[in-house]
Design a protein around this nucleic acid. Sequence first.
DNA 1: TTAACAAATCATCAATTAATGATATGATTA
DNA 2: TAATCATATCATTAATTGATGATTTGTTAA
Lengths: 107, 107
Amino acid sequence: MLEKEKLKLKAKFFRGFADPTRLAILESLRSGEKTVTEIVQETGQSQSNVSNHLSCLLECGLLKNRRDGKNIHYSIRNAKVEKLLENSDIVLSEVYREIFECARYEE
Amino acid sequence: MLEKEKLKLKAKFFRGFADPTRLAILESLRSGEKTVTEIVQETGQSQSNVSNHLSCLLECGLLKNRRDGKNIHYSIRNAKVEKLLENSDIVLSEVYREIFECARYEE
DNA sequence: TTAACAAATCATCAATTAATGATATGATTA
DNA sequence: TAATCATATCATTAATTGATGATTTGTTAA
């Protein structure tokens, strides 16, 4: 694979984390497996929006899921993804002010 | 700060990594400090585009810079940011196929 | 086998953002 | 101080994407 393609892929990977709703989902799942309904309640987002982002996170390999009757339970794929979230918290705590003041992105 | 605001901020943080050009810059700087001209050459992107993304990465605290005569040298802010890049490489290597096949994002 | 519940999919709309080309700023050297 | 080199900024354009509401699929229980 070309270097250029690798970079696109890596960007795609990070984009999984680069949205408030997806992060809310990931944060919500850091305390353990949850159903879609529970995630909808916790995040306060619409069902369809949560579902969209769940598909996204699932497809990109950050989450896994399992059916249990009518419910589908989602959880963080593995310890390495959790580790990455912890790790990014550490870096984020260092650059908090800069990010806060950065006017480049609004959302 | 509200939980919602924190998530927006965190998303903003990850967005720094969520673009191929910005990643190309970050990758290029993993081997050490470089001038804008050098980064332009390495990435093959236009000067203005590189400059825009450099400002972005700088503002968000992922890079630092210093002037040296006519040149401005950019480098990765600190070891923790480097560590995060390494860490994400590890996770990425695990979810490579999923991301590759994920049709949600095109770029 | 129908009703109710849980979740996914689809089309549409609005907003965001990356890239481009042109121009401006700042530093050095002739 | 004029010319050149290095970088930043600006306005515009095109493409991407997140949110919404409606609909569909799938599962269980009445």
